[in-house]
Lab assay of single mutants.
Amino acid sequence: MDVFMKGLSKAKEGVVAAAEKTKQGVAEAAGKTKEGVLYVGSKTKEGVVHGVATVAEKTKEQVTNVGGAVVTGVTAVAQKTVEGAGSIAAATGFVKKDQLGKNEEGAPQEGILEDMPVDPDNEAYEMPSEEGYQDYEPEA
């Protein structure tokens, strides 16, 4: 019985440690998101679009440190934060509304985080759909 109880105690310690790591990862992701939003706020009209992409990228980098179902929630929060940063930029006159959601080359930025393969159960990952990809044929 002692062996059984000791095993359960060790398992509990492992769960607590994993929860603490997840909590730490979420806190880091939130900190990076805040950094990115402050970065966007300090940019001029020309830099705002690039700044919004930076927020998304920093958040995406930190999301990889967070495991399990938390990833889905962090990704949703990050996307809403990026959308909010863009709205703030438009409201303050840093950028025109028609410039939001495009990178410096004018290509749409939507789907940055949505296409990231995420499995809350950590069982399997699927690649994003290939609808947006084109076949590449090298020139002879």
Rank of each mutant, 00 (worst) to 15 (best):
E83W: 13
Q109D: 12
T44Q: 01
V77M: 12
G31I: 14
E20N: 03
M116C: 06
D2F: 07
T81V: 11
G36I: 15
I112E: 03
V48G: 01
M127A: 12
A124N: 14
M127Y: 09
T81A: 03
E137G: 05
T92A: 08
A140C: 08
D119I: 14
M127N: 14
P120W: 07
G14Q: 11
G41L: 15
G25P: 01
G84W: 09
L113G: 06
V52F: 02
A17F: 10
E61L: 12
D98C: 07
V74L: 09
D121M: 05
E123D: 12
V37L: 11
V55A: 08
K45H: 14
G111N: 06
P120E: 06
N103Q: 13
V52N: 00
V48D: 00
I112K: 14
G25A: 05
E83H: 03
T92R: 09
G25C: 07
I88L: 08
A91E: 06
E35Y: 01
M116Y: 07
E57S: 09
G106I: 09
E139D: 10
A69K: 04
L113T: 04
A85I: 10
Y133R: 12
V40L: 09
Q99A: 11
I112H: 03
D115I: 09
Q24K: 15
G51L: 14
D2R: 07
G73C: 03
A29T: 09
V52R: 01
T92M: 04
A89T: 06
D2V: 07
N103S: 07
K60E: 02
T33K: 00
G31T: 06
V26Q: 00
V16Q: 10
S87K: 09
Q79I: 13
L38E: 02
E123L: 05
E57H: 07
E114R: 10
Y136I: 12
G106M: 09
G73Q: 10
G51M: 14
K32T: 03
Q109E: 02
D98N: 15
G132E: 14
K12H: 09
D98S: 05
G101T: 08
M127T: 11
G36R: 04
P117F: 06
D2Q: 06
Q24M: 02
G51A: 08
A11R: 00
D115A: 11
K43E: 00
V49S: 09
I88N: 02
G47R: 04
G106E: 03
G67S: 13
L8I: 12
V15N: 00
A27L: 08
T54N: 12
E131Y: 01
K80I: 09
F94K: 05
E131R: 12
E104H: 14
E139Y: 09
K43A: 08
G36A: 13
M1C: 15
E105C: 01
E13S: 04
L8Q: 00
Q62F: 14
S42D: 02
V15W: 14
A91V: 10
A56N: 01
G31D: 02
D119F: 00
G41N: 04
G36P: 00
K23R: 10
A90I: 14
E105N: 07
A56S: 05
D119W: 06
V70G: 01
K6E: 15
K102V: 15
G67W: 12
V66K: 02
G67H: 12
D98H: 14
N122Y: 05
T22W: 11
V49C: 07
H50D: 05
K97Y: 13
V49R: 10
E130V: 07
T92I: 15
E131D: 13
E35P: 01
Q134T: 02
K96G: 10
E57A: 08
E130H: 04
V3Q: 14
G73P: 02
E46P: 02
K96H: 15
K32A: 12
E123V: 07
V118Q: 02
Y39P: 00
T59P: 01
L113Y: 15
E110D: 04
V63M: 02
A124V: 10
E35S: 04
G73S: 02
V52P: 01
D119L: 08
K10L: 06
E126Q: 07
E104C: 15
V16L: 11
E137A: 13
P138M: 10
E28Q: 13
E20R: 11
K34V: 12
